[in-house]
Design a binder for these strands. Structure first.
Lengths: 192, 192
DNA sequence: TTGTCCATGTAAACAGTTACATGATTGA
DNA sequence: TCAATCATGTAACTGTTTACATGGACAA
């Protein structure tokens, strides 16, 4: 049920279309949540039906162009209530670990798999660092809007929360890199 | 599609029932994958239909007691093939992070949320450490069976793979603890 | 006799992915 | 005119959770 809050959170900084959300899930927001357009459009309709967002037609010239959604007061209240609610932790589902512990029949087959792990998290770290840097530089419209919407103290808080999120995810990626390097080193010692 | 491999992996050390699997997903295996019995029983039936496991009735006295499943050669082959396949990384879905970045309207509400994070990962770390210690001591039948089934070198590999999995997850938990502590410290400085 | 554990299932609902489907606009 | 991007939807399927359902064994 987090999808609706990801959407409300996005719209809390300003109006947007389903398509905007879709692109956002492929970039910035996508670090924390993601969804396909096939899930987004119906969910936006449900949010509108529930009165958490308003929908109005945008026209290009004379004809209908797209739907623009904006959050309502009710939606804002619901978002804040959810944000304050106690966290729920999903059950562990890590197919990587599964592969690892069931590879003892053929451990050397783990090599490409560990190398992929390394590559994946190195790329992830780079992209996270880039996103975070450009955000600090003020390149992200939505976050800038969020920052400029409030007081100076509030701006600091907004930025600090992003910092916690991004540096936290960067640290996670670094942990995976260190882990994979250690595992590869052990594999090397096995081969010798 | 990892459920079937979690099941095959479990059965690769010896026969078991659906109920055994269900308990296992609540303990040892549960660190890496989990499922409810409502998902396990139908999946076992599908595995049997596909010839990856054999099913035979176990009788208590004269009457049917339970179904015992054991992996077939075909099942073993399928498991190994899957274990060697390149990893796939699921899209990020972290409702914690979502709550964090959308809490700038009321950052002090984050406190219980960060404390829950801390508690959750401290408990997780303890339980992981305990499980790993008792496994090293040879308390886990399945893992011992797995170790005793092969050569001495193979035994070392089995243990080392578990070590990589458990210490990796312990390190992840520790990262979350460190992160939450830093976040709480910042929150404290905000309150002052 | 009451509660806990063992044991196995099905049904309904929810969440998410993949595939199908359409059409306008814009720039090379 | 061709490809990419903008824009919105539905349908079928897969995976997971929650709830419903049953019954034997055993110990307090």
């Amino acid at each position: 049920m987090s999808l609706r809050y990801a959407i409300l959170g996005y719209l809390s900084t300003g109006p947007g279309t389903g398509y905007d959300l879709s692109r956002q899930f492929d970039s910035g927001l996508g670090w924390f949540w993601s969804a396909r357009h096939s899930q987004i459009y119906p969910e936006l309709k449900r949010l509108a039906d529930a009165g958490l967002v308003d929908r109005h037609d945008a026209v290009a010239g004379e004809v209908f162009d797209k739907y623009v959604y904006s959050i309502t007061e009710k939606g804002r209240a619901e978002l804040q209530q959810w944000a304050a609610a106690p966290p729920t932790y999903p059950p562990n589902r890590d197919s990587e670990r599964l592969r690892l512990i069931f590879s003892d029949d053929d451990p050397l087959a783990l090599r490409p798999h560990l190398e992929a792990h390394l590559k994946h998290f190195r790329e992830r770290r780079e992209r996270l660092q880039q996103t975070w840097s450009s955000m600090q530089a003020g390149d992200h419209d939505r976050v800038r809007a969020r920052i400029e919407a409030g007081s100076r103290e509030r701006a600091e808080i907004t930025l600090k929360l992003r910092e916690l999120a991004y540096t936290g995810d960067i640290a996670r990626a670094e942990l995976e890199i260190t882990w994979a390097l250690a595992a590869l080193e052990w594999l090397d010692s096995l081969g010798r």
